[in-house]
Nucleic acid binder design. Structure first.
Lengths: 209, 209
DNA sequence: TAGATTGTTAATCGATTAACAATC
DNA sequence: TAGATTGTTAATCGATTAACAATC
């Protein structure tokens, strides 16, 4: 595996926000945007915005601003979300189903290539038009699909096992919704999502004196 | 409103992880834990763990470690998650329903006090045993409930309007699942959750050379 | 040209890490 | 006491902010 990115992680996270706002500007027919206007839209300061872009190169014209279309496609290219990417969804329960139904996958060119579950009641059935496969077949089926990204929408006790299978199947990036720390080999990236943690943080912040 | 916390936000986010691990240790019957063992469990270094706690006071005994039960309840008290807190869920669609069904609310002592939607098909009905109210009644009903926390599981175009209603109803903390920047008055805290952003970040990280 | 806005440098700020004295 | 582990200080590291020269 390669050494960690020189790009600050917070900067990387903001890039995705920029893409979203640029898409909206494009839909609205706007052709040019300044860092000041981006601050208005995203809440990220103009200086921060320009600094974030500077890690990757030059994207604007002094005195003029940024071309909306061009900037959007260049950031999308940096994030590698210009070409369609297959992702594996593990867990066809409430959360998995809700995620599958989420509109917006396509805006970022992600495509759910397969859905897995270990519940015999669900295996062989469909969730929102997608076939549900036996989680035991992750390695086998991803040999065909070649996905590098997996989403874990399974109960906490199952998460580590599923993560192992996904990694064995060649996945190198995981989004984990289960409240467990996943042990993964070096080179595998895990992003954790936990709304209970967000609630706990809020709980502290709103009760401060 | 009050000035921002002196506690680093990353430290605050980690506290919730500590609570979770301590709950597990308690269930496993463990009575004492060292910062080194916590590192093993959470992935947060022992030094970081001790430093995080030091913002709040002293929690352990030198040469011995931390009492599991005691530490858990003291961190829970810091986060204000020892007493039950009512939360408002807005959006009874796929995501809202999945969140409602999520096990674990209770471990952090959150209780969904009311569910709202603006779809006439859903209003008056039930979602997983909870009554669905007209989103137009948020202010009215929260006068009774007195919740300070709201979750937004609504489509992006509806989010800003709902946020306004929640704030008017007295909510000071929001967890927003919609991919929009919410404009809120000073003093209202917003935590954003976006799995598409997580996917975009992963996309960059796994494709690095 | 004059006005606007970028890209970049330097200064500031804040968080993490390492080391160790305190103390159980 | 000797060994272990905390709480805290100081050093390091990294990100953000402010300022401005470059340039459209």
């Amino acid at each position: 595996m390669t050494r960690a990115s020189r790009i600050p992680l917070p900067a990387l996270e903001r890039l995705s926000t920029y893409v979203r706002s640029l898409m909206e500007l494009k839909s609205a027919g706007k052709q040019t945007v300044s860092s000041r206007e981006m601050e208005e839209l995203t809440g990220v300061t103009a200086a921060q915005f320009r600094k974030d872009l500077s890690y990757f190169g030059e994207f604007g014209r002094r005195g003029v601003g940024y071309n909306v279309c061009d900037l959007q496609s260049r950031i999308a290219a940096l994030l590698r979300i210009e070409a369609e990417q297959p992702v594996l969804m593990v867990g066809a329960g409430n959360l998995g189903s809700a995620l599958i139904a989420y509109p917006g996958w396509n805006a970022y060119r992600f495509r759910i290539a397969a859905v897995f579950d270990n519940d015999p009641q669900k295996i062989g059935g469909e969730v929102r038009g997608l076939h549900v496969y036996d989680a035991g077949r992750i390695v086998e089926l991803n040999a065909e699909i070649g996905s590098q990204i997996g989403l874990l929408a399974v109960p906490a006790p199952a998460a580590q096992g599923v993560a192992g299978a996904l990694v064995e199947a060649g996945v190198t990036g995981l989004v984990n919704f289960a409240p467990v720390k996943l042990d993964t080999p070096p080179g595998v990236r895990v992003r954790q999502i936990s709304f209970l943690r967000e609630l706990a943080v809020l709980s502290y912040l709103i009760h401060q004196d």
